[in-house]
Amino acid sequence: MSGTVADSANALLTVSGLETYFPFGNRWFGKREWVRAVDGVDLTVRRGEVLGLVGESGCGKTTLGRSVLRLVEPTRGAVDFDGVDLLSLKGRGLRAMRRRMQIIFQDPYKSLSPRMQIGQIIAEPLRLHRIVPEHEIEMRVQGLLTKVGLEPYFMSRYPHEMSGGQRQRIAIARTLALEPEFIVADEPVSALDVSVQAGILNILLELQRGEGLAMLFISHDLAVVEHIADRVAVMYRGKIVELAETDRVIGSPLHPYTQALLSAVPSIDPATKRKRIRLPGEPPSPIGAVVGCPFAPRCPEAQGVCRESAPALEPKAAGHFAACHFR
């Protein structure tokens, strides 16, 4: 097998060697430590593709999503968006690129200003980026509301008058206002009830297909990711440990962590009961450097080599990458 995660035809976003560290602890006394939220990530998102990013809380998936948009500044590495080196951009150049890449946040109760009417919320990006002349804004906003399945009369409403599902639709409409090519959707349905969640997922899928959007879909919920993603990346303590087509990751996972994660998902079909793989120990702390494989302390198959050298994310089958010495 040859090739790396980064060389992919048709890549829209290419992330290589990305590290995002946060300082931790006292600067003057004791040892200065770093929270290694993103600790060496290689990734591509292809044009028109939904890449699912899964992992448990604290594994760095949100920081990775924000780093590729430069909503937090990466420490090292490179992010290439459609041939442009994002990390070297400043000011106006960065703002122009941001038009093409947008984000949907997890909590629609926090991401919408309570003091603005829905119409203003959706129009704001249109005005800031001067997308359309003032007299066309209202029509554009109405069109966006229709796209996300809301009636135009919502324009004069305030967020507190709306349910969680409706708010998330507003957040999506605001994201779409700039007609981006790439969206980071950070747990967009986690705060919603399951009956409402389905509606939002369907809208995202429809829009993604209709407009050929590329999406980095971040979620802790494997069933949701399976539903929406073309490929899935599994993250553990700041690193991608497995990356492949969705059916392969769900159906024939290679990495021991992916296998354990999948086995823990509760099933509502008594017929498809999975055998639980129990992981000893606790989810890892992201503080400080790791020697060897980050999963080794909990891995049921770990050997000496796993504690000494970190496995690289390598192709194990066509398009199926895993970071494990024994796969």
Binding site: S195, D221, L222, E226, T246, D247, I250, I268
Partner: peptide, 9 residues
């Protein structure tokens, strides 16, 4: 409305 794991995407 519950997404089920393993039913294809």
């Amino acid at each position: 409305s519950v997404p089920r794991l393993g039913v294809g995407h």
